[in-house]
Amino acid sequence: MEALIPLQWIFDALLGLGLLWLGWQALASTDLFRSIVLFISFGLLMALAWARLDAPDVALAEAAVGAGLTGALLLTALARLKDTSIAAPGIDAGHPPIDYAPDDDESTRIKRGDD
């Protein structure tokens, strides 16, 4: 086990740095889909970190709820955002800001009731 300790240090350091990097990327990305995928990866690495901290209960909960279900919820929310087109220009993942034209948008027109 003695020989493994430097390896564990390297692994923990990489894990910590990876978490920070993923967290930053998830927050700073302008592409919502990319942010969500990064968030899910963050959750999985976080579960690994909890496991390294000898907290398997928290690791299980983090992997299942933090990464899995929250990720799926965010992806569903993103899909519905695209459906309803209420996302602000530049935030919507699928379309660049130039494509955003509220007056031509079918769902917006229905919403206003002037169809």
Partner: peptide, 17 residues
Amino acid sequence: APGGAFQAGAVLGAAGV
């Protein structure tokens, strides 16, 4: 051992989702 209602419920929820 590690496990319990919340983890089990989350896995069950994953099946449903």
